[in-house]
Structures are given as C-alpha cells and as structure tokens.
Amino acid sequence: MSLISPAQRDALQSWLAYERGIKDASDHTITAYSGDVAGFLSFLADYHGGASGLASLATVGPSDMRAWMAAERRSGTGARSLARRLSAVKSFYRWLARTQKFDPTAVLATRSPKVKARLPRPLSEDGARAVLETVELQSQTPWIGARDVAVVTLLYGCGLRISEALGLTGRDIPLGDSLRIVGKGNKERIVPVLAAARKAVDRYLSLCPYQLEPDAPLFRGAKGGALNARVIAKVMEQTRMQLGLPETATPHALRHSFATHLLNAGGDLRAIQELLGHAALSTTQTYTAVDSARLMDVYQAAHPRARRG
C-alpha cells in the first residue's frame, strides 16, 4: 500500500471497518477485500504518476477501469479472480460515493468478465465411504488419525463447512442428536448429528492428549493449538492420491457430497438448504445440476416414449 495516499488508506480502513462491523464480514472476506482494493488503488496511483487524495477517486472513468482490468489480465489474473476483485472495488465505491457525495456510475457500470459457472463435484457414495475409511491411514499417530476421521465425518455426515467444523469448541461436547452451527453471516442453523459422527468424535477425544476446556478448540493441531484447515486439506490430498480420486476431492467436496447424496435419496431441496445454511435456495439448486446426466440416463432407460424412440 506504499503508493496509496494517507487519505485513501484511511478511507479503505474505514470501509473495511464498516464491512466488518455493519455487514458482519468474516476475517477471510476482510483480508480479501483489503488486498483487492489496495491493489486497485495502487494501480491508479502508478497509472496516474503518483498518489493523490480522495477527490481523484471520484474522477475515475471507463478508460481507467479498462486499463486496470487489462493490467490484471497481463499479470495472469484469471476471470474468476478478476470478477471477485472488481466486485470488491464496486463495493468500496458504493460506500465511498455515499460518504463523499459523488456519482460512482463509471465504476459500477464496469462489466465483470464472464465466468463459467463451477458446478459442485461431489464424490460418489463409494468414494466418500473410501475417504472415511482411508483418511486415518495418513498419520502414524493414533490420535491425529482419529482427529482427521472425526473432522471429515462431520463434513460429510453433517454438511459442515471446514471453518464450521474447526470452529467447534469444548462447549459443543458431548455431541447430541443435533448441533447448533453459526455459519456465514452469523446465520444459525440446527443440523442432525449421525451416530457415526458422534462415535468418531468420541474416539478422537478418548485419544487426544490435550485437555478440552469449554472455550478451547475441539480439534487440535499436533502441538496443541487450533487445527489449521490447511492440515485437513493436505490430508485429503494424500487420501485422494492413495485412492486415485480426482483433484476435486477436497474437504469442501465432502459438503457437496452430503447435499447431493441427500438429494439423490429423495431429500427435499428446502430442507437441504436449511441443513447447509444457504441464504438463498438458488445456491442450493446448483446441486441439482450435478446429477442431471444420471437423471437423463434413468429417463432414457425407463420412460416408455424414450425407449420407443
């Protein structure tokens, strides 16, 4: 942020505080926003030959936006990342325009690059079962292997996000028939806890060498601190390589698998929406596209008209 003027830096920090305090943005979101907008402001300073104050931001026009996006593409930024950065810049400009009383149309009208929709790629039921059976083998330390099994069982058995699973504390123990989860946007939901998940967590607790205090994280790293999500990602990487699964077999894929397998078994889309903690049904509906090919195969095999055709 060395090229950004003090006034612009202060404005950025004020906006981030607004996003954190008023909109309840997560730490991860705040970090991404900070880097995205700081990069944009640094580009403007360099593009115009030096840092300037807030007034200059009100004069940013279409040519400035095109130049910034072209520079991003030249540096190797993909369409999806550029779309995210543009979204952050627009959010900053909406706030800035309200506080500084100027028209942000030139920035807000900038078209986002087209991004091909990414459909979730769940594991098959056999693949998910194989992961649960194999993940423990990635560690020679029994309690760590049991920990990894407990985490992935919660992801697949309860549809938790990795951050939600790693956010559990001693207060959540012992697990009952349901679990209260605080997810994105501070949105609360109740998820059922399968017997297999309770058993996996109980086994981990019986082996874990660290004392579990009410406010302490449930899942610990090797040295006793809070378990980092990257550790589970690495364990999943080792597991999928051992099983010959695709690169899409990530911790988050277990959550997708939870939803897809429920849907395939006749689960109600609205109920699955609640279990996943999605704010909009449209987010949950992306799961219905995953098995469209399978549904078409069933249709072709079973429908009388399809068979005659």
Score class of each variant (00 low, 15 high):
3 L>F: 09
4 I>D: 07
9 R>C: 12
11 A>Y: 12
12 L>R: 12
16 L>A: 02
17 A>Q: 13
20 R>N: 06
22 I>A: 15
23 K>Y: 02
26 S>K: 10
28 H>G: 12
32 A>N: 11
36 D>S: 08
39 G>R: 05
40 F>W: 03
50 G>N: 15
50 G>A: 11
50 G>T: 03
51 A>P: 06
54 L>E: 03
55 A>K: 05
56 S>H: 13
60 V>A: 12
63 S>I: 14
64 D>T: 03
69 M>P: 08
71 A>R: 08
72 E>A: 13
74 R>M: 12
78 G>W: 00
82 L>P: 07
82 L>K: 06
84 R>L: 10
86 L>Y: 14
88 A>R: 11
90 K>I: 01
94 R>V: 04
95 W>R: 08
100 Q>I: 02
108 L>G: 00
108 L>N: 03
114 K>Q: 11
115 V>F: 10
118 R>I: 14
118 R>S: 13
121 R>S: 02
123 L>M: 08
126 D>Q: 09
127 G>Y: 02
127 G>Q: 06
130 A>E: 13
134 T>I: 05
134 T>H: 03
134 T>R: 15
134 T>Y: 15
137 L>C: 13
139 S>Y: 01
141 T>H: 14
141 T>I: 03
148 D>F: 02
149 V>Y: 08
150 A>V: 01
150 A>G: 05
151 V>G: 03
152 V>W: 04
153 T>W: 00
156 Y>T: 01
157 G>N: 01
158 C>R: 03
162 I>M: 04
163 S>D: 03
169 T>G: 15
171 R>V: 08
173 I>E: 07
175 L>G: 00
178 S>G: 11
178 S>D: 05
179 L>Q: 05
181 I>G: 02
184 K>C: 09
184 K>P: 12
185 G>K: 07
187 K>A: 11
187 K>H: 13
187 K>M: 11
189 R>Y: 04
189 R>D: 04
191 V>N: 15
192 P>A: 12
192 P>H: 05
193 V>M: 11
195 A>E: 00
199 K>S: 06
199 K>H: 09
201 V>G: 09
203 R>A: 14
203 R>I: 14
204 Y>A: 11
206 S>I: 11
207 L>Q: 02
207 L>R: 07
208 C>F: 05
208 C>W: 12
211 Q>C: 02
215 D>T: 02
222 A>F: 04
225 G>R: 15
226 A>Y: 01
231 V>N: 10
232 I>M: 14
232 I>R: 06
234 K>W: 10
238 Q>Y: 01
239 T>S: 06
239 T>E: 15
243 L>Q: 05
250 T>C: 02
253 A>V: 00
253 A>N: 00
254 L>D: 10
260 T>L: 01
261 H>M: 01
266 G>L: 13
271 A>Q: 10
273 Q>T: 07
276 L>A: 05
276 L>P: 14
278 H>L: 12
285 Q>C: 12
285 Q>Y: 02
286 T>N: 13
287 Y>N: 06
298 V>C: 09
298 V>T: 13
302 A>W: 12
302 A>P: 06
304 P>N: 01
304 P>V: 06
305 R>W: 06
306 A>L: 05
307 R>K: 12
307 R>F: 04
307 R>P: 08
308 R>Y: 02
